[in-house]
């Protein structure tokens, strides 16, 4: 989309022209969803957050300084909408204690075969608190102090959550790699700990039954 066309759309949006709003929405749908998907747990949640973001865009578009890049402004709004959503669901965001987590060996983490789909699913698997900090630190580039202010948490908590997020992501990558080698992992996108757990339980059941029979 050319600059002139974009500004024309923005002018239309300022006038609350619904057609212009829809055109702008469609034009930046992929970009906005890309951001929200990183912060959200699934696609539906991401769409909800993105719509909250676009709602803010359309209701405050007259405040946008047209001399500045629109994409950066929109991206910031989407990020803020995601943070708002995180805050609103704070009680839902559980944290896990990693003390009992199995030790992860330092292997070759950068698996070149992992694509966008694989990675976004891994990020979405993270608990919300870890995911939000990981996004803000690793992808957006904020410092722990800044993240602490944004999320109303201590910088120490931010560091801790980042550490736990990295730990879990590393586990996921290694598991994905192992799964692929073992032939159980098709596209790298179906990483699911709960399925693994169910299989483990089933196996135990079989073993116990065998024990009784014998």
């Amino acid at each position: 989309m050319g600059e002139e066309e974009l500004h024309q759309l923005i002018r239309g949006c300022i006038k609350q022209d619904r057609k212009c709003q829809k055109m702008l929405y469609k034009a930046f749908y992929g970009f906005s969803m890309g951001i929200c998907l990183r912060y959200a747990g699934n696609r539906d949640e991401a769409a909800e957050v993105m719509n909250q973001g676009f709602f803010k865009v359309f209701t405050h578009i007259e405040k946008f300084d047209q001399s500045r890049p629109f994409k950066a402004w929109l991206g910031k709004i989407m990020m803020n909408a995601s943070i708002d959503f995180y805050r609103a669901n704070l009680k839902m965001a559980y944290t896990e204690d990693l003390d009992n987590a199995e030790h992860v060996t330092d292997g070759e983490l950068v698996d070149k075969n992992l694509n966008y789909e694989d990675l976004i699913k891994m990020v979405q698997q993270l608990p919300q608190a870890y995911r939000t900090v990981f996004n803000l630190f690793a992808i957006e580039g904020y410092s722990h102090e800044e993240i602490g202010e944004m999320l109303n948490i201590n910088p120490g908590t931010s560091k801790s959550n980042l550490h736990k997020a990295r730990h879990k992501l590393k586990q996921m990558i290694l598991n994905a790699d192992a799964g692929r080698k073992g032939g159980n992992y098709n596209s790298g996108a179906n990483y699911n700990t709960s399925i693994v757990a169910i299989r483990t339980i089933d196996m135990n059941g079989v073993f116990l039954n065998k024990g009784i029979r014998e």
Binding site: K22, Y25, K26, Y29, G30, F31, M33, G34, L37, R38, R43, A47, E48, M50, N51, F54, F55, L109, V110, L114, N115, Y116, L119, I120, V123, F134, F137, A138, I139, R166, L169, K170, I173
Partner: peptide, 27 residues
């Protein structure tokens, strides 16, 4: 390395998510 891996691939998705008309309807 881990951060870079995610940043490079997630920062700007090459294959953006397909547009869904239902999302616009909700908005």
């Amino acid at each position: 390395d881990l951060d870079d891996l995610f940043r490079k691939k997630l920062e700007d998705p090459v294959d953006p998510v397909g547009y869904n008309e239902a999302d616009w309807d909700a908005l």
